[in-house]
């Protein structure tokens, strides 16, 4: 796959079809591949593909709006691109998608903790283990053979759903108490593109700075709600979080609900309008108080 990606990138750059290619290169710390920005054909040898390409590269695309960019996209990255286009953040023709069918990414932090150097199924991220779209949903060229979807499994969400409201509140408080407000989750997320995030507003100040439990809770829950019907389940937020908060269980709850209530999945079709941006008389109303 690495060779194919390099070959495509070289061609795109040589022919001047794109100004740069965003992909992955080997990182400087163990088990980490990191985003790289290739501008010259002779630099394509830096590009790699392995099980540690955990970031969602679509988060960079808005910086290059109006310029022609090539991007290496796994299934979830491609869903983010679709959603960015659907939400009017990106022009389809500005981006050349090098689609990479993905067999899943491995949790490097867990592997390092366990002293493992070789990836195995046990260390796949949960959202990869249950990935419905491992093959990109939108691409200009595919760098490998299609990968079959995996079965969805929301048992992590169900565990939280089964808790009593007191238990759940306690769980939220405990998990959120580790948040340091660095906003790595927000910045890693391709869908968190607000020019001015609600957490930064100070007129009015929706969320106070600092680490009071109510502010930590409001930030994390507020962000999850803002991603309802928009989250593409890439897990970039949780992977970026230095304190390892279980952010994906919140997002997956939203994904699950949106699927159940509206039969909608974010970022899978350019023809569908954002689910919470449209009204349909047949929409279910039984969840409205």
């Amino acid at each position: 796959m690495t060779e194919k990606i390099r070959e495509i990138a070289r061609r795109l750059l040589e022919n001047g079809e794109v100004e740069l290619v965003i992909g992955f290169e080997k990182g400087t710390i163990p088990l980490k591949s990191r985003p790289v920005f290739i501008e010259k054909p002779e630099e394509v040898e830096k590009l790699i593909w392995d099980g540690f390409c955990e970031n969602n590269l679509a988060t960079y695309l808005r910086r290059y709006r109006g310029r022609k960019v090539g991007i290496v996209a796994k299934g979830c990255d491609s869903r983010a691109i679709v959603n960015l286009i659907v939400e009017g953040q990106l022009n389809r023709e500005d981006v050349y998608i090098i689609g990479v069918p993905c067999t899943g990414m491995y949790d490097r932090r867990k592997m390092i903790r366990d002293g493992k150097e070789e990836p195995s199924e046990d260390y796949l991220f949960l959202n990869c283990k249950t990935c419905p779209y491992p093959t990109p949903v939108l691409y200009d060229e595919l760098a490998g053979e299609e990968v079959s979807p995996r079965d969805r499994d929301y048992s992590d969400v169900e565990t939280i759903e089964k808790m009593s409201s007191d238990e759940r509140w306690e769980w939220f408080q405990r998990e959120f108490s580790r948040c340091i407000r660095c906003y790595a989750c927000r910045e890693a997320c391709p869908m968190c593109f607000c020019e001015f995030c609600f957490v930064d507003e100070n007129r009015p100040e929706w969320v106070e700075g600092g680490i009071h439990p109510s502010d930590l809770g409001f930030w994390n829950l507020g962000r999850a709600f803002h991603l309802a019907g928009r989250c593409v389940e890439c897990g970039a937020c949780e992977r970026a979080c230095p304190m390892e908060l279980p952010l994906m269980v919140l997002n997956r709850k939203m994904v699950k609900d949106v699927k159940e209530i509206f039969d909608y999945e974010a970022g899978v079709s350019l023809d569908e309008k954002p689910v919470l941006g449209t009204f349909n008389p047949e929409d279910r109303e039984d969840f409205i108080l």
């Binding site: 985003p35 660095c182 927000r186 890693a188």
Partner: peptide
Amino acid sequence: TQRCITCGTCTFL
């Protein structure tokens, strides 16, 4: 800066 996502992890840690 190309790869930096401008979060505050580095500064807070």
